[in-house]
Deep mutational scan, measured.
Amino acid sequence: MQFKLIINGKTLKGEITLEAVDAAEAEKKFKQYANDNGIDGEWTYDDATKTFTVTE
């Protein structure tokens, strides 16, 4: 399945997509990506659109 991450950071904004088996795997990958890029914020997930959002 394809999942999307919307980044609303203080210095980094944008979207990325990835393939994952389920939402838990996608969340783990997205949070690792955010951590690697210094993004720390409030996370939400919309199951209907398979979209994660992180807002700093």
Rank of each mutant, 00 (worst) to 15 (best):
Met1Asp: 06
Met1Glu: 15
Met1Gly: 11
Gln2Gly: 08
Gln2Tyr: 14
Gln2Arg: 15
Phe3Ser: 00
Lys4Asn: 07
Leu5Cys: 03
Leu5Ala: 03
Leu5Ile: 03
Leu5His: 00
Ile7Arg: 01
Ile7His: 04
Asn8Arg: 12
Asn8Gly: 05
Asn8Met: 15
Asn8Glu: 10
Gly9Leu: 15
Gly9Asn: 15
Lys10Ser: 04
Lys10Gln: 11
Lys10Tyr: 05
Lys10Ile: 08
Thr11Asp: 04
Thr11Gln: 10
Thr11Lys: 11
Leu12Trp: 15
Lys13Ala: 14
Lys13His: 11
Lys13Leu: 09
Gly14Ala: 14
Gly14Met: 10
Gly14His: 10
Glu15Gly: 09
Thr17Trp: 14
Leu18Thr: 05
Leu18Ile: 14
Glu19Pro: 05
Glu19Lys: 07
Glu19Asn: 04
Glu19Gln: 12
Glu19Thr: 15
Ala20His: 03
Ala20Arg: 02
Ala20Trp: 03
Ala20Ile: 04
Val21Gln: 14
Val21Ile: 14
Val21Arg: 06
Ala23Arg: 15
Ala23Leu: 06
Ala23Met: 10
Ala23His: 14
Ala24Asn: 05
Ala24Pro: 05
Glu25Trp: 05
Glu25Lys: 06
Glu27Gln: 15
Glu27Lys: 10
Glu27Cys: 07
Lys28Trp: 13
Lys28Cys: 04
Lys28Thr: 11
Lys28Arg: 10
Lys29Leu: 13
Lys29Arg: 06
Lys29Met: 06
Lys29Pro: 02
Phe30Ile: 03
Phe30Cys: 03
Phe30Val: 10
Phe30Glu: 00
Lys31His: 08
Lys31Asn: 05
Lys31Trp: 09
Gln32Gly: 12
Gln32Arg: 12
Gln32Phe: 13
Gln32Val: 12
Gln32His: 05
Tyr33Asn: 02
Tyr33Gly: 02
Tyr33Asp: 02
Tyr33Cys: 03
Tyr33Leu: 05
Ala34Leu: 06
Ala34Pro: 00
Ala34Trp: 03
Ala34Asn: 03
Asn35Ser: 06
Asp36Gln: 13
Asp36Trp: 12
Asn37Trp: 12
Asn37Lys: 10
Asn37Glu: 06
Gly38Phe: 10
Gly38Gln: 14
Gly38Lys: 14
Ile39Asp: 01
Ile39Ser: 02
Ile39Gln: 02
Gly41Trp: 10
Gly41Pro: 01
Gly41Ile: 02
Gly41Gln: 01
Trp43Gly: 00
Trp43Arg: 00
Trp43Asp: 00
Trp43Ser: 01
Trp43Glu: 00
Trp43Phe: 09
Thr44Arg: 11
Thr44Tyr: 15
Thr44Glu: 15
Tyr45Thr: 01
Tyr45Met: 02
Tyr45Cys: 02
Asp46Phe: 09
Asp46Leu: 05
Asp47Val: 10
Ala48Leu: 15
Ala48Val: 10
Ala48Pro: 15
Thr49Ile: 10
Lys50Leu: 14
Lys50Cys: 03
Lys50Ala: 10
Lys50Phe: 11
Thr51Pro: 00
Thr51Leu: 04
Thr51Ser: 11
Thr51Val: 15
Thr51Arg: 03
Thr51Asn: 03
Phe52Tyr: 13
Phe52Cys: 01
Phe52Met: 02
Thr53Phe: 15
Thr53Ile: 12
Thr53Tyr: 08
Thr53Asp: 03
Val54Ser: 01
Val54Phe: 07
Val54Asn: 01
Val54Leu: 11
Val54Ala: 03
Val54Glu: 00
Val54His: 01
Thr55Leu: 13
Glu56Tyr: 13
Glu56Pro: 10
